[in-house]
Amino acid sequence: MKILELKNISKSFGAIHALENVDLDINPGEALGLMGDNGAGKSTLVKIVAGNFSPTNGEIFVAGKKTSISNPLEARNHGIEIVYQDLKLCNNLTASANVFLGREINSGFGFFSRLKHTAMNDRAAELFGELQSETRPHDVVERMSGGQRQAVALARTRLSDPKIVLLDEPTAAISIRQVAGILARIKQLKETGHAVILVSHRMMDVFEVCDRVAVLRRGNKIADKPIANTNPEEVTGLITGALEKA
């Protein structure tokens, strides 16, 4: 069964059609590479799945059930976790505060509730350990390297047990050594039955970890084929428009 299905998704901003009738689906344990040039509609698609935008037209099914995702919290509740391109970190807060942002552990209710600092720090330390990162929960994000910042953003996706993990350009801003770590992490997610959508410019990364690649061009999906049946040259041609269709 498909864990996530997008049917006929369109999104317009006034006269600009960012997406036109895009269909996309993904199975549990599968990694899908989503590629396209700048302005092809990748970010718009990510934001629709994340609940930042609602589509102008079209339907979204999560685990076969028709759903509407009208805000980021709803996306999380449906088991969709996003790692954004710019990581969405608050520089003024500690690593642990960033991991738990919007999902803090509280004791008590409503006005009389209280943040459980120790519980959150301990859990964050565990998560950083699992990610094999040296990040410490008390450190302020402002003073972290690119890799540590990435670890904080990744740790967020592990708070719940998500069904779908969407990574938007995760390897764009980090060192080569750390790229290997991210790719290993994606493989690990696949093995544990998670669906992974990898939005990336880097052909190498997509061909290393993904099972399938979908290409967007000017708001339309022009290709969607297994990695085994294609090659980097063909995908490059599709992205640039040298090849009209796959």
Binding site: N71, N92, G102, E104, L115
Partner: peptide
């Protein structure tokens, strides 16, 4: 020690991130 205060710091630190995290 309250979620409210934590969220204010987040909004002041990076409004965009606070919004994206719900």
């Amino acid at each position: 020690h309250h979620k409210f205060g934590r969220e204010l710091y987040a909004i002041g630190g990076n409004r965009d991130a606070a919004e994206a995290l719900g």
